[in-house]
């Protein structure tokens, strides 16, 4: 069965240019037609195998930069070969590989694999309710490792300025449908005696990592578990053991009392989080494999014991 992958930010695809992205290790060309609808084609011309993404978008679809064959975004069908005579027609079987594409909440999604595209998109839950910060990167770490490290040591992959993410995670990951959810303690930097001596953590970092697929949710929560920052990171396998990342995140409007340093940094427009494109190999290598064991198990075991599949909301009070 196939699945949806968020492969690009909505705003990254515009005009008469296609965007080259890599999803599940395969190169795709994503583009819009004149009406703004999004399409995804394999980034490989069936004529002579040249990447399509550098070509211009024409009314008939994406035009290959090498000889100008043009491919319809929805079907992949070739609808123009330049210089044909009026009475000549492109053979019906001439086509590039097309993938269903859909857009929601600032992400462009591509359906890959068998089956009818599912109704719900991985980015569907995301709604920015505050100042947004977006980005994309190719991280120097393999895709499966990226997901595992997001459970074992998210501080290797991202940061919240002014916040120290501890490696004290709470219990085992909870299974929530196709995801594993894990909370870990965090503290404000420069307060108290350091994270090892706090009696209770003043913050939580909650990571929600998929067993399959690439949609990750990361939240910075107050001690009362009210969200301060919410991030959606869409990851997918890129080439040569790297990982494609696109993300959107936002700062919640908070009534709770927050350190003045955090408030000032936000007030002057400093980003409330950072996603690392360059990952520290030594830090990742030093991580013990811990909660990610459950992810690896869940990947091989298609059937989770029913009692462990508990909706997150019911388990919030830790």
């Amino acid at each position: 069965m196939g699945r949806w992958w968020a492969v690009a930010l909505s705003e990254a695809v515009h005009g008469d240019k296609a965007l080259a992205v890599t999803c599940e290790g395969e190169q795709l060309a994503v583009f819009r037609d004149g009406k703004g609808a999004v399409f995804a084609l394999e980034d490989r011309c069936p004529h002579r195998r040249v990447p399509l993404s550098p070509g211009p978008v024409k009314p008939g679809g994406l035009q290959c930069p090498y000889h100008g064959w043009t491919f319809d975004g929805a079907t992949g069908l070739c609808n123009d070969i330049p210089n044909l005579r009026r009475d000549e027609r492109v053979p019906a079987r001439y086509a590039a590989r097309a993938f269903p594409a859909a857009e929601a909440n600032g992400f462009i999604h591509v359906w890959r694999g068998a089956g009818t595209p599912a109704a719900v998109l991985p980015g569907a839950w995301y709604r920015a309710a505050g100042r947004e910060q977006t980005g994309s990167a190719v991280a120097n770490i393999a895709f499966d490792q990226y997901l595992d490290v997001m459970l074992d040591g998210p501080e290797c992959l991202l940061s919240f300025p002014g916040v120290h993410i501890t490696d004290f995670f709470l219990g085992d990951p909870r299974r929530d449908g196709e995801h594993l959810v894990l909370d870990r303690g965090a503290v404000w930097k420069g307060k108290g005696n350091g994270p090892a001596f706090v009696r209770d953590h003043s913050l939580w970092v909650r990571t929600r990592v998929p067993v399959r697929g690439g949609d990750i949710r990361v939240e910075l929560l107050s001690a009362e578990e009210d969200p301060l920052v919410t991030i959606f990171i869409a990851a997918s396998e890129n080439r040569r053991g790297t990982t494609s990342l696109v993300w959107r995140g936002f700062l919640h409007a908070m009534a709770a009392p927050l350190p003045w340093r955090w408030r000032t940094a936000r007030a002057i427009g400093r980003a409330p989080f950072a996603i690392f494109p360059h990952i520290d190999g030594a830090a990742v290598a030093a991580l013990e494999v811990a909660p990610s064991r459950d992810r690896r198990l869940a990947k091989t075991d298609t059937r989770m014991p029913a009692e462990r599949v508990v909706p997150v909301q019911e388990r919030c009070a830790v």
């Binding site: 490989r44 069936p46 004529h47 002579r48 195998r49 040249v50 990447p51 550098p54 930069p65 090498y66 000889h67 064959w69 070739c78 070969i81 210089n83 044909l84 001439y94």
Partner: peptide, 24 residues
């Protein structure tokens, strides 16, 4: 070279999917 470089790499891939051609 901008087309030849990616093209060449792709001729190492499986040849199951044959190139399509026009009379040109």
């Amino acid at each position: 070279n901008s087309v030849l470089r990616p093209q060449n790499a792709r001729y190492f891939e499986s040849t199951e999917r044959r190139d399509l051609s026009s009379r040109f």
